[in-house]
Design a protein around this nucleic acid. Structure first.
Lengths: 334, 334
DNA sequence: GCCGGTCGTCGAAGCGCTTCGACACTCTCA
DNA sequence: TGAGAGTGTCGAAGCGCTTCGACGACCGGC
């Protein structure tokens, strides 16, 4: 379409207007007559004009880019993270923003760098720990930020997440309704609890409280990712607690192993043991049998995080804490 | 450290030099005396100066950002993609570049947009199909690009990937050395073959040719991701071919299911059936038993892609095609 | 002691955009 | 009929940086 990169002044000349008029057509910050707007828009598409991002950022002090900080650490289930990431990218585009990907390798220095250099306007952080090194930095940054997950001290921050305590409780409610009296939670790998990752602990708390509220017998165990370890955990559990008839699994990577272990131990699902999972829908549906599950609404969380960060960019007030209500889908496993 | 964003002219004033001198200290494009350099560097850290990315991009016509185009499609194993992505980010940082994340939702329009707006200097594309819609666009783009994977017509493009044909052949060699005479390949889900994704087909070709070269009996089948489907595939395979004693699995998501199915069908690994996988090392090590495998060198591929794209940015000549040699790690499954 | 050649530094001209103030019009309504 | 209040458009001043050409200061060679 073009000789080489097209600038706004070429568009202005082509349309017979001033440069500023073209700018106002694009931004809508001043009223432009329908006739002029049309001419400008025609010239833009005739020349194939795309505003230069650097020049725009320099003049407007907005880069229209947000940073997505994605640690990629041990014990995290990567497909789930990617669904968040993908949702964030899609949602950001709706607000005409792009997404810069930051991994943990650089630590806090990377966050400081992209913020200080005005490469990004705002930040979305994932996989937040209870005691997260990045949190103090966020407080001193001028750029707005939103956390997916909750640190121990969330005051003054904007956080969004699934209500994992309610999710854990919801699973217990469901098993209680089905008449199960002795149940167990198989959670994240122990390293995740030790690190103090919020969602693992909150699920466990919700589970424990709901077990007490219903007057059930219940135990919560961490659960590793390899088949052999899962097998041993499940086997030990069934030996120790012959009356056990319900299982809550909150570990995407282990779900398949749990089902394989039960098969191998001659326990039928749901006849001998009912299983309810907290995991993405596709994992639950793909399992055999398909699992009753509380889904992790990655798309919704990502979208919500972007909405919040855009609100903050526009100076609108936002709630400190956004908890999404868990929904239980009943399938063949309970 | 600062009142509000620090500019280069504040640094210049603080150090008692001209703005251009500060710029040359930072870029190293002209010689600067050790004494002056030291004063400038001191001022920079005293003031906490970070160059403004937009201004820099505008003046230098380089954004120091590369785009990572990541489709996130059905049948792709996400953790593997993420390892590529993570490697690309890390490698890009070594060259002082950041990474903008583009997903497929926007299609080719997103690529055109970030290139035309000078948001990025170059592109790295992942998960390339044999007949990829993005390829024609890349050819007409001024910005250099590198593909991870090969399209059907790679002339004039720069592509890098594991040599999957050699990987498939290497697995066959290994099984042949162990004395197996009837073997099978369980590959990607059929949708991946139908889409014409290069790596799946190339593995199969390498497998088929090596089978012929060794004078073995061999069959190549697609393989879905769910346990039930994998179970049926494996069961059917063992029924049809009683003499089968070796399996090559090229499907990260199905590896665990294959092992579970063999367990359930009372086949011992490696005693009754030897299994060799093409998958990341951590998946192979975590399996039970640990799998002999050709690893997918995600880190190396990502690093190489970034190195190539940087070379192109600097105007250096690069090879059209870079194939990484597969390495087989022998573990307990063969 | 003068000439050509680095070396180290400076000033100024942009890069392509946004935004502010100004200005010429056209409507109202007193 | 003229003051006041919009409309729609323009010109120019930056935004913070890189880079080009210029220019002293100093060097060695004759």
């Amino acid at each position: 379409m073009s000789g080489r990169t097209v600038t706004i002044s070429q568009v202005a000349k082509h349309a017979g207007v001033a440069v500023s008029t073209v700018s106002y057509v694009l931004s809508g910050k001043r009223t432009i007559s329908a006739d002029t707007r049309r001419r400008v828009l025609d010239s833009i598409s005739a020349l194939g004009y795309h505003p230069n991002a650097g020049a725009r950022a320099l003049a407007s002090k907005r880069s229209n880019v947000i940073a997505l900080v994605l640690p990629l650490r041990a014990g995290m289930h990567v497909p789930v993270l990617m669904r968040f990431a993908s949702a964030v990218v899609t949602a950001a585009r709706r607000f005409d923003h792009d997404v810069l990907l930051l991994t943990a390798d650089e630590g806090t220095e990377g966050i400081r760098r992209v913020a200080a250099s005005a490469l990004v306007d705002a930040l979305v952080l994932m996989d937040v720990e209870l005691d997260d090194r990045r949190v103090p930095l966020l407080r001193e940054l001028a750029e707005p930020s939103v956390l997916i997950g909750f640190p121990a001290e969330p005051a003054g921050l904007t956080c969004v997440d699934l209500d994992f305590a309610a999710a854990g409780a919801r699973c217990v409610d469901h098993l209680a309704e089905r008449g199960h009296e002795e149940i167990a939670l198989l959670g994240a790998p122990s390293v995740v609890y030790e690190r103090g990752t919020g969602f693992a602990r909150r699920t466990r708390e919700g589970f424990v409280e709901a077990v007490a509220a219903h007057g059930l017998q219940g135990v919560a165990l961490p659960c590793e990712d390899t088949f052999d370890e899962v097998y041993e955990t499940v086997r030990g559990l069934l030996l120790d607690r012959p009356g056990l008839s319900g299982l809550v699994v909150h570990n995407e990577a282990a779900v398949g192993h749990v089902l394989a272990a039960l098969r191998q131990l001659d326990r039928r699902v749901p006849h001998d043991v009912a299983v309810v999972a907290i995991c993405p829908d596709d994992v639950a549906e793909r399992a055999s049998p398909p699992l009753s599950s509380v889904l992790i609404p990655a798309e919704e969380v990502g979208r919500e995080a972007v909405r919040l960060v855009m609100d903050k960019l526009e100076g609108r007030a936002v709630p400190d804490s956004t908890l999404l209500t868990p929904l239980l889908a009943v399938r063949a496993s309970t």
